[in-house]
């Protein structure tokens, strides 16, 4: 199994280990493919489709698609960038994302993707849905207004914490993040130190009493677009 797989992303040759996904191989090669639900420590899920690339001309989620010999992958094309922009815009209008007072602002991956794509306003009408806030837990806030249904918390609770705190209920437009308990978050065995709390890309799951600790100008995405770390590592290796 020491064989490596050779394929190309936007014409650049990339090597992957057998079993690696396109996204993992791209990261290792210093090529950033935008993503929201994918997380290094979690099994791929394919929820958000932001990482959609074209594999031999066919759209595929880069986070779930294993790399294969001779694949021709397109990622940074005007068509796919437009597709990703529209996905981000749809996520903004289908939730209640008030960046101006959100504790996650500046460190939020959804916001950072919008910055990276230079989105100044969504082209879709705002839906202003009714979503529940669950503040029952003494140390953790669950604000479903900001949920993007990425399932990171669902996966992290199962795969990293050995628990099963979060699950989805409902289907389609009614799909909602719910807690695995009789009533609310306080009834679960969630601990504030659980990885499920950390992995939320947006401000849906927050530690209480930690808000606005990092001043504006020093937050994660204040100066550099999301994905810069991956691209910089690639440039340093001369990729």
């Amino acid at each position: 199994m020491s064989e490596t797989i050779g394929f190309t992303i936007d014409g650049r040759p990339v090597r992957a280990r057998p079993g690696q996904t396109i996204l993992e191989a791209a990261d290792a090669a210093g090529i950033y493919i935008p993503r929201l639900c994918a997380h290094r420590e979690l099994h791929p899920f394919g929820a958000c489709r932001v990482c959609t690339v074209k594999v031999n001309g066919r759209p595929q989620a880069a986070c779930t698609m294993p790399a294969a010999e001779g694949m021709v992958v397109e990622s940074n094309t005007p068509e796919l960038t437009e597709h990703r922009r529209r996905l981000i815009e749809m996520l903004f209008v289908e939730g209640n994302h008030y960046c101006m007072f959100c504790e996650k602002s500046g460190n939020c991956e959804l916001q950072a993707l919008a910055y990276r794509f230079g989105i100044t306003a969504p082209r879709y009408p705002y839906l202003f849905p009714n979503r529940d806030v669950d503040a029952s837990h003494p140390d953790v806030l669950l604000d479903r207004n900001r949920c993007v249904l990425c399932a990171r918390c669902v996966r992290a609770s199962q795969q990293l914490d050995g628990k099963n705190v979060f699950q989805f209920v409902g289907r389609g437009a009614n799909k909602t993040l719910w807690v695995n308990a009789e009533r609310e978050l306080a009834d679960t065995n969630l601990d504030v130190r659980d990885r499920a709390v950390d992995v939320c890309p947006v401000g849906c799951i927050l530690r209480k009493r930690q808000g606005y600790t990092i001043p504006i100008g020093r937050r994660r995405y204040d100066h550099e677009p999301i994905g810069s770390d991956i691209e910089r590592a690639g440039a340093a290796r001369g990729a």
Partner: peptide, 18 residues
């Protein structure tokens, strides 16, 4: 030109939309 969050997404006043 829409200037600011309120012009663009309704902003804080839009919190009454629910």
């Amino acid at each position: 030109v829409s200037v600011g969050e309120c012009a663009i997404c309704g902003g804080i006043p839009a919190m009454r939309n629910n």
